[in-house]
C-alpha cells in the first residue's frame, strides 16, 4: 500500500499482556507499519479517559488501548473497568467529533504476538483510510 500519509497512533499497552506480546512480536520480527507509539501502563484499567483525549488533542490520529482478555486480568478486573470506561468514552469521543475507528480497545494476551502485529497493521491501514484527524468544531 502506498500512501504519503503516515498517521500517528498512540498505543497504551498493559505491562503484563499486550506489552509482552509487542515485545514477542519484535523478537519474532513480525513486520509492523511504523505508526504506533507505545506507552506502557500497568493495566488497561489505568488508562484515564483524559489520556486518550489528551492524545487526540496533541495530534494523535488514533488511540489503541490493549489489555488482558476478560477473566485474565493481572489485577483481577482492571480490564473490565477499562471495557466499561471505553464504552462511555467511545460515545464521548463521537460527541467530540472523533470518528469511529480512531479509538479502539483490544484484548491481546502475552501469547498472542501474531494478533498484536495484526491489530497494529490493520488499525494503521484503517486509520490511513480515515485520513488525518482534525478536530471538528461544533457550531455554537
Amino acid at each position: 500500500m502506498t500512501t504519503d500519509y503516515e498517521p500517528k497512533i498512540i498505543a497504551f499497552l498493559c505491562n503484563w499482556c499486550s506489552y509482552v506480546a509487542a515485545d514477542a512480536a519484535g523478537v519474532s520480527r513480525f513486520v509492523q507499519l511504523p505508526n504506533v507509539r507505545v506507552i506502557r501502563v500497568f493495566c488497561s484499567g489505568m488508562v484515564d479517559p483524559g489520556y486518550v483525549i489528551k492524545a487526540f488533542a496533541e495530534g494523535a490520529d488514533a488511540v489503541l488501548v490493549a489489555g488482558c482478555h476478560p477473566g485474565d486480568c493481572h489485577y483481577i478486573s482492571g480490564n473490565i473497568k477499562a471495557m466499561r470506561r471505553a464504552a462511555l468514552l467511545d460515545r464521548l469521543l463521537t460527541e467530540m467529533g472523533v470518528e469511529k475507528g480512531r479509538f479502539r480497545l483490544e484484548w491481546i494476551a502475552a501469547s498472542e504476538s501474531p494478533k498484536y502485529a495484526e491489530v497494529i497493521n490493520e488499525m494503521t491501514r484503517s486509520v490511513q483510510k480515515l485520513g488525518p484527524f482534525r478536530v471538528q468544531r461544533c457550531a455554537g
Partner: peptide, 23 residues
C-alpha cells in the same frame, strides 16, 4: 493497577511513577 486513578474525576489519585503528569 491504577484503576482508581483512572476513575478519579479530579485527578487526585496517581500511581507513583505512573502519575498523570508523567503520562
Amino acid at each position: 493497577c491504577g484503576t482508581c486513578a483512572a476513575a478519579c474525576p479530579v485527578a487526585a489519585i496517581g500511581v507513583q511513577h505512573y502519575t498523570p503528569d508523567q503520562v
